[in-house]
């Protein structure tokens, strides 16, 4: 039995206005827009997430990926457009509401409580209770099982999360979302801090969550990771949807090219030829201070929006 299936078994209860036989897309964003003061982080974004599919959202730093998922997770309210969950327009007032609708999230920038123990963090806001009290043995057991499945072993779950490595912390957060996500799991750059092996484990879990019938939103800026598991690809650029394509309509090369901005990659390799990657320099007295490489005006213009 895998984690995704156990969580799916505890699927979110149906809410007001929902029919239990609904089989349309679980989540539809129509013309969603969001501004932070005078920064338009998102404009006119349309995304459809189906259950049993992995929807990958790609984009450069600052493209608006985190803003997008914070809207779905109930952390931010959208200022334009509509968000439909199982066909009904919703605006989540808080993450607690989003969770009650079965949406679990791993945030890129919001971690765990550093001085709190691993098991308490794992079950935070989803505690298992026996009467008014915590059922600590059960919580520790489940936590240990779920972490072991993800390939990390923490012998002392009473240890503060702050004493774990960055990768281990990330795995705890992912394991938690996978365990508690009932309808939609959102992962914001989950593999960014992980090594190759653990990235592989996370990608496998994404596939397992899909197999269990959950809608997965996988955010990354790595097209290779996305293409390994994705059914649907959305590329964000400066808050707009630059590409929205199904797997059939797209090759990895096209996706990579779209991410890098088409022929820009070719230009980059041309630019970097003068770097001589095969070169090795013998140790010698450092001149002290390395001059910044010179950029041409085109490149500088490209960086302004990032």
């Amino acid at each position: 039995m895998n984690a995704a299936r156990t969580s799916a078994a505890r699927a979110a209860t149906t809410h007001a206005g929902e029919s239990s036989t609904y089989d349309g897309p679980v989540l539809e964003l129509e013309n969603i827009g969001k501004s932070y003061g005078n920064v338009h982080a998102l404009r006119g974004v349309n995304i459809t997430v189906r259950q049993g599919e992995v929807t990958c959202v790609l984009g450069d730093n600052g493209a608006g990926k985190s803003t997008l998922i914070k809207i779905v997770a109930g952390l931010h309210e959208y200022s334009e457009g509509t968000m439909k969950l199982r066909g009904i327009v919703r605006q989540f007032g808080s993450p607690r509401v989003a969770q009650a609708f079965g949406i679990a999230t791993v945030y890129q920038d919001l971690a765990l409580a550093p001085l709190m123990s691993v098991w308490r963090n794992f079950f935070l806001a989803n505690e298992i209770r026996k009467g008014p009290f915590l059922d600590i043995p059960t919580m520790k057991r489940i936590c240990a099982e779920e972490l072991t499945k993800m390939g990390i072993v923490i012998p002392d779950l009473d240890r503060a999360v702050g004493s774990l490595s960055g990768g281990q912390r990330q795995v705890v957060a992912i394991a938690r979302a996978i365990y508690f996500g009932a309808r939609v799991i959102i992962l914001d750059e989950p593999t960014a801090a992980l090594g190759v092996k653990q990235s592989g484990v996370v990608l496998k879990y994404i596939a397992k969550a899909r197999d269990a019938g959950l809608g997965v939103i996988f955010i990354t800026h790595n097209p290779h990771h996305a293409y390994l598991v994705g059914n649907h690809f959305v590329v964000l650029k400066l808050g707009h949807v630059a590409l929205d394509a199904h797997r059939d309509e797209l090759t990895l090369e096209q996706l990579t090219a779209e991410m890098a901005g088409g022929q820009e990659l070719a230009e980059l390799s041309h630019e970097l030829r003068s770097v001589h990657p095969e070169k090795v320099v013998l140790p010698h007295d450092a001149p002290g201070g390395i001059e910044a490489p010179e950029l041409d005006p085109n490149e500088l213009a490209g960086m302004e929006d990032v």
């Binding site: 919001l110 409580a113 001085l115 915590l134």
Partner: peptide, 21 residues
């Protein structure tokens, strides 16, 4: 009790605590 977890997390990292509900 679960209120204890809420208290620890509200003091430890309130933004992260709010984000998980």
């Amino acid at each position: 009790t679960h209120y204890g977890s809420w208290i620890f997390s509200a003091g430890g990292d309130s933004a992260a605590a709010r984000a998980v509900g």
